[in-house]
Design a protein around this nucleic acid. Structure first.
Lengths: 167, 167
DNA sequence: AATGAAAAAACTCCTGT
DNA sequence: ACAGGAGTTTTTTCATT
């Protein structure tokens, strides 16, 4: 399943997703107890969540600092025409990039990088700078990341004041 | 283990970490085969990686689009003095924030948010704007995220030209 | 979707190298 | 510090209601 359409998820599906995001190694038995279902029922639901592409995999979470890469930086990159990072560089040339996004606005690309030292970051910035103008932001501390995806809460629409017509 | 010091990891540890990041549900038997060790040996290494805080947990990976939250935005926030988001707001007031970083530079905080619609994002930006000046960036597309942490490659130091003394 | 049972697989201990 | 094997527990899956 590779389309982008959302899948209809009921309350039990969200319970399962929350539990599996908190502990991806839960057995069907343990998971079933937590969501008040039987093991076969929960196994079937998990299978459907996997096949419908809601669950894309299971992964060990690792503390990058502990693993020798304590630094995080974000880099905004405005590529030169015809020399965009995404077209001219291969992913494995930049193993330190853990996220790559295309943005609205005048800086086309936002990168998130992990590095082992400031010298490492310095070298990375120099390499990236070959692709265009860059603007770097070094992360001083991280309050949290990898927060679980949660069920959408009811939205509070922004209501314009009187006299404005909302389209 | 809560300190920040890196843990010494040998080649086998990195093999294990790469396998478990790719599939967090691997059994010790399957993992042992892949890293050319016996099951008890690999179980002992995994136990040590967990206890030393390198592996912090295991998680199901969710396709947020499929789960009804297709939008991602980054928000740079410069808090007003004494009214910083991190001091005045509770985490559960902002369930759409999946990452919170403190940055160097003049915008103190970088937030990553997931939302279900542009109306949802609009409301979020309004709420965040109560804490200070914000600058928002909507992600148009994501090349990748959640890339695994990999063993640090040998660094290429940036060598200054002659005449500059490196400290 | 629940129950209960059979089958399969996982984990862990122990011993030896 | 690791390999191999055996025993025990857990997990998964299937058939039935």
């Amino acid at each position: 399943m590779t389309t982008l359409q959302p899948v209809n998820l009921d309350e039990t599906d969200w319970l399962i997703l929350e539990e599996l995001q908190a502990d991806g190694r839960l057995s069907y038995n343990a998971l079933a107890r937590r969501v008040h279902l039987s093991a076969p029922a929960v196994a079937e639901r998990v299978r459907r969540l996997e096949e419908s592409g809601v669950i894309t995999g299971y992964s060990a979470q690792i503390n990058a600092s502990r693993a020798g890469q304590p630094l995080v930086a974000y880099v905004q990159l405005r590529c030169r025409l015809g020399d965009c990072l995404l077209r001219t560089a291969r992913a494995d040339e930049y193993p330190e990039l853990v996220e790559v996004h295309k943005l609205s606005g005048d800086h086309c690309t936002l990168l998130k990088a992990r590095a082992s030292s400031l010298a490492h970051l310095e070298g990375l910035f120099e390499r990236l700078g070959q692709h265009g103008d860059i603007r770097t932001h070094i992360v001083m501390s991280t309050q949290y990341e990898g927060r679980p995806v949660r069920p959408p809460s009811p939205e509070r629409p922004v209501t314009p004041a009187d006299g404005w017509t909302q389209t």
